[in-house]
Design a protein around this nucleic acid. Structure first.
Length: 422
RNA sequence: GUGGGUAUAGCUCAGUUGGUUAGAGUGCAGGAUUGUGGCUCCUGAGGUCGAGGGUUCGAAUCCCUCUACCCACCCCA
């Protein structure tokens, strides 16, 4: 092997992009029908943005960021996630000033320096959305219902929704204290990592997978028992709306997210068949982050979907195929001279047309037509052209008709329109 | 960062106790069918056997080193 792409950085080839484009198109349509607008953000930000928003003690900031210095010695970082940048843009462009609710979606690559494995890459793609200025629980449920619908349309409805509430600045400290007290008493059974987490970030102990830690965690005080009146009502509201629409969910009081900024509702869509990296989408509410980054206090909620993971779940058979409509078989120089301008005309009219320029036998051209999965083939050889005509063959029914050269374009477009309407 | 697995044709993979010219399927090209695709049959092109070193008369095969990829831990989308 000579030159290779960087470890964890992958080429997405056309065969796969077919699925990707479908997933993206459905996403765009769905989000814009819910009145979200697309925002496109830089891949590079000042490092400070991520350390302040995601949290200094998180794994992402501690050991997974691509950080380096530019020529003027500023510390820059390739974005490891999308929310921080959206919040930055929201503040920078004064979007709060309008007082409107701002609903934004984005898609693009993220970068984390992790050891690659199934469903985890160093450059990976996310589809995400953020809503600013809406504190009501209807907004939380809107996102969950929208996501559930999205997965259903893509045929990956088996992704299971896990739901939790992390409380707010009023109820979280009390819970944190209760949790820490409990862990202090049973700390001897915890693993080394959790001994450390216990001090810095006790919530992280809750989702440790080690059997010994799980035993301790099973008996631990639950955050849901510590929610204040408002947070409880908020959580109950979300659940009621999900019940009304009939969306399955699992309340998981041990689910903690890896980013520090979450408050109240947090969620993950977990899929089987994905291997160890089984979260296909995740997100939550972050009512304090805008303020913490220097904006006016603004409630917010968002989510991100792992594109590679989602694409793995999508059955390629359910992806609409986009084959060209017609193959233009040019036998000889004079035929090529006629079909060449025709292909441009057809392509520009939105009719998928394929034409090969190298001189081949008709058998070979027919084979190419077949490989291209076209609906029709136009055969033009010396015989036909002398008679001022060409043959249009329906590849499925094998019916052939002769059409005059001077009406080729209009005739083909008529056939194309008829095919579209079926 | 720590484990385990794998590396042979464009792709998916065989390759015996080390043995002479490294195979199959698929894909590609040509032909059977002189101007009509899919099915069938025939033929052909395509390999530094991941890289480097060692053992041996002889290495894809045995040993060492390196590299890449995959899976898992961890963490997360």
């Amino acid at each position: 092997m000579g030159l290779q792409a960087i470890k964890g950085f992958n080429d997405i080839l056309p065969a796969e992009m077919n699925t990707w484009q479908w997933v993206e198109n459905v996403f765009r349509q769905l989000l814009s029908s819910y009145n979200y607008g697309e925002i496109r953000l830089p891949l590079l930000e000042y490092t400070e943005l991520f350390s302040r928003s995601i949290g200094d003690d998180t794994d992402i900031v501690e050991k997974e960021m691509y950080t380096f210095h530019d020529r003027s010695n500023r510390s820059l970082t390739l974005r490891p996630e999308g929310t921080a940048s959206v919040v930055r843009a929201f503040i920078q462009h004064g979007m709060a000033a309008t007082g409107n609710i701002n609903k934004l979606y984005y898609l693009g690559p993220m970068f984390r320096y992790e050891r690659p494995q199934k469903g985890r890459y160093r450059q990976f793609y996310q589809l995400g959305a953020e809503v600013f200025g809406e504190e009501d629980y209807h907004q939380d449920a809107e996102i969950l219902i929208m996501l559930a619908r999205y997965f259903h349309v893509l045929g990956v409805g088996s992704a299971k929704l896990n739901l939790n509430s992390l409380g707010c600045k009023h109820c979280r400290p009390a819970y944190r204290q209760a949790l820490q007290d409990y862990l202090q008493r049973h700390g001897e059974y915890l693993c080394g990592d959790c001994q450390r987490r216990m001090q810095k970030n006790p919530l992280r102990v809750l989702d440790c997978k080690r059997p010994d830690c799980r035993k301790v965690v099973a008996e631990v005080p639950k955050i849901l028992d510590y929610l204040g009146v408002d947070c409880q009502a908020h959580f109950d509201g979300v659940i009621r709306l999900l019940d009304e629409v009939g969306i399955d969910y699992h309340v998981n009081p041990f689910m903690v997210r890896g980013l520090d900024y979450y408050t109240r509702t947090t969620f993950e869509f977990i899929a089987g068949d994905l291997g160890a990296q089984n979260a296909v989408a995740a997100g939550g509410r972050y009512d304090r982050l805008v303020e913490e980054l220097g904006g006016k206090p603004t409630p917010a909620i968002g989510f991100a979907i792992g594109m590679e993971r989602l694409a793995m779940l999508v059955d390629s058979d359910s992806v609409p195929v986009s084959a060209p409509f017609i193959y233009l078989a040019a036998l000889g120089e004079s035929a090529l001279n006629i079909l060449y301008p025709l292909r441009h005309k057809l392509n520009q009219a939105g009719v998928g047309a394929v034409l090969n320029y190298r001189q081949k036998s008709l058998k070979n051209l027919m084979k190419k037509a077949d490989r291209n999965n076209v609906v029709y083939t136009l055969i033009a050889g010396d015989q036909e052209i002398e008679q001022g005509a060409a043959i249009l063959r329906n590849m499925k029914t094998k019916e052939q008709q002769t059409i005059p050269l001077n009406t080729l374009f209009t005739n083909i477009r008529e056939v194309f329109d008829g095919h579209q309407n079926n």
